[in-house]
């Protein structure tokens, strides 16, 4: 088909169809590459400022000073969560309980956000955080997350949420 023919009504309609056909190919390509897109879904955790290191260590040992904690700003409090989430294994088991005891609403909501928008590994660690925190307030959060996970057909996460939920309900 030459340029003259492309300028006809049929030619222009064919051009439109070609663009739409190309879009279909691209759409199919994207639809089949969910794994690629999921690689970019992860939370980024800020490095713990040196000034907060003693507080993080104290939280890990279950000796968090409430007075010192209350002086922290909201972002500073979240640094402590970020630090726990970013730490290499083995994770200090005392931190979640200390943090949730100090500010239950903030840390439970933060862990819920990780379960929703973190990577698979981060989600599992956030569930670990909730389990170690042992807070009853985490139960409704986990129930909702379980429903959401079942609907999204994330089998491994659903199983892990169910386990965590059962343990928390049992205790």
């Amino acid at each position: 088909m030459n340029k003259q023919e492309l300028r006809t009504l049929t030619g222009q309609l064919l051009l439109l169809c070609a663009m739409l056909a190309g879009s279909v190919v691209l759409a199919v390509l994207i639809a089949t590459q969910r794994g690629f897109f999921e690689k970019f879904i992860e939370e980024r955790y800020a490095a713990l400022p040196a000034s907060l290191k003693p507080l993080a260590d104290a939280a890990a040992e279950g000796r968090l000073d409430p007075e010192a904690f209350n002086k922290l700003s909201l972002p500073e409090r979240l640094f402590l969560y970020d630090d726990w989430m970013a730490r290499p294994e083995p994770l200090p088991a005392g931190t979640p309980r200390s943090l949730v005891a100090a500010d239950s609403g903030l840390y439970l909501t933060r862990a819920e956000r990780t379960i929703v928008s973190g990577s698979e590994k981060q989600k599992l660690r956030a569930l670990n955080f909730l389990e170690l925190a042992g807070a009853k307030d985490a139960i409704p959060i986990l129930r909702k997350a379980r429903q959401w996970s079942i609907k999204r057909r994330t089998v491994e996460i659903t199983a892990r949420i169910t386990e965590t939920l059962e343990r928390l309900e049992r205790n």
């Binding site: 739409l20 759409a27 199919v28 994207i30 639809a31 969910r34 999204r152 057909r153 994330t154």
Partner: peptide, 16 residues
């Protein structure tokens, strides 16, 4: 068609 071609097909790739 132009506005919905992509969501109609890409949505098929969603988990749910």
């Amino acid at each position: 068609v132009a506005l919905n071609l992509f969501p109609a097909i890409i949505g098929l790739g969603l988990r749910d």
